[in-house]
Design a protein around this nucleic acid. Sequence first.
DNA 1: GCCAACGTTGGC
DNA 2: GCCAACGTTGGC
Length: 137
Amino acid sequence: MAYWLFKTEPDVFGWDDLVARGDQGEEWDGVRNYQARNNMRVMKKGDLGLLYHSNQGKEAVGIVEVIAEIHPDSTTDDTRWECVDIKAVQPLPRAVSLAQVKSEPRLTSMALVSNSRLSVQPVTDQEWKIVMELAGL
DNA sequence: GCCAACGTTGGC
DNA sequence: GCCAACGTTGGC
């Protein structure tokens, strides 16, 4: 199983919104970046991810699960853009901030630091474990 | 609100 | 296929 990180602006669609969708989850549409799309293409049902709030908060706030693999993005007719569906699994007992990630020596190679603009990022097993520690899990 | 970093577009 | 111009993202 692989791990991921999904970035979102809480003003537009945040953790609370995803929780409100319940088990039916939400189509992660609107991604218009090839790297981010390519990451979604290789996701498998059951993969887990972090939900990260950019701009407001700048912290990972919850764990999400991939519930539908890659399919066309219903918000566009452009066939280049595809997406997955995700649902909220559980909130992190302690949100993990960008500042924490940056100051943790073992996390300096996380895409969140090295490629901060990428909206859907891979997270390694090792990174996941460390983030879970920081989150209190 | 500024600006650095990065991706995309389009002229050549 | 290169690269300048432009737009967007996201931290500060």
